[in-house]
Design a protein around this nucleic acid. Structure first.
Lengths: 154, 154
DNA sequence: TTATTTGCAAATGTTTTGCACACAT
DNA sequence: ATGTGTGCAAAACATTTGCAAATAA
């Protein structure tokens, strides 16, 4: 579905340009490259993954700029940030209108799978309400073994 | 309830000494001090908090030893480790036979409150089972504003 | 023109580690 | 005696930041 991918890219570009305009930010070659690639990366990637991909295709953008731009994209809700472990790099994923979801992280191979349970969300809200806590965001991660790693360990 | 606290300390000391014996680890002054204080700290503390408390009471233990011992205590299930943010220090809390619980972290004041919902746990298991994922542990954090911070912002 | 943005190198801050010495067993 | 544990300083390492040069508006 190359056509499909192209359409999505065009859409992202358009949204991003509007975002820049609206916030009086500058439209630079680096920012555009970063956004484009961020949306054609594997579902989960780190700042360094992106840096390396760009550089492999001869697009030299400094890491500082990668970090600054990813942060920008998270604030603008183009990307979501996922903390997998304290000393590990942050993982990013494109949002593109998808609903929030949670993650299952395999301790064997590092693979990250997604799931969502609106019922869980409801219970969270309920628990928070009990302490008059206003939930702004949440993070639910299951750590364990994916089917493949579990089998190979059996 | 000073009496109560003393009893708990005695119990922890006993359990810890058994743990050391069972694992053929050495019974050192530093380890004992660290464990004692870890169990009489505020509910949530960082390695550095503990380091500073010890040092205030003239117990000089190196940070390296604090870190090594806290790691040991987590492995031995005396303490649990809580990741509040990627670039923030890890937070520890004593377990002492309590059940697992989740956390609500106030973005205003940093306060950490606890809650637990067995219903959520059940739903997690269910979601995981769908992908043949074996859950070994999980982390659920709600980020938002505690009642006080929410009010002061209104 | 001028306020942003970039790239570089240096700083950050928590945690880990190598190594020589000290110490529990 | 000898294998562990400790303290120190240095390393690790993802991310951030100061600053001067480059560039979009």
């Amino acid at each position: 579905m190359r056509r499909e991918q192209d359409r999505r890219n065009a859409k992202v570009n358009e949204l991003f340009e509007r975002f820049l305009r609206d916030n009086r930010l500058k439209h630079t070659a680096q920012r555009l490259k970063i956004v484009q690639r961020a949306f054609s990366m594997p579902k989960h990637f780190s700042a360094d993954d992106l840096y390396l991909v760009l550089r492999r295709e001869k697009t030299y953008v400094s890491k500082a700029t990668i970090y600054r731009t990813l942060k920008l994209l998270v604030e603008a809700h183009f990307l979501e940030e996922l903390e997998v472990g304290v000393r590990e790099p942050k993982i990013y994923e494109a949002i593109s209108g998808r609903e929030h979801h949670d993650h299952m992280i395999c301790l064997g191979c590092g693979q990250i799978a997604e799931f969502s349970e609106t019922a869980i969300e409801k219970l969270q809200e309920q628990a928070a309400k009990g302490s008059r806590f206003r939930v702004l965001s949440h993070s639910l991660k299951l750590f364990g073994l994916c089917a493949a790693c579990d089998d190979s360990k059996a």
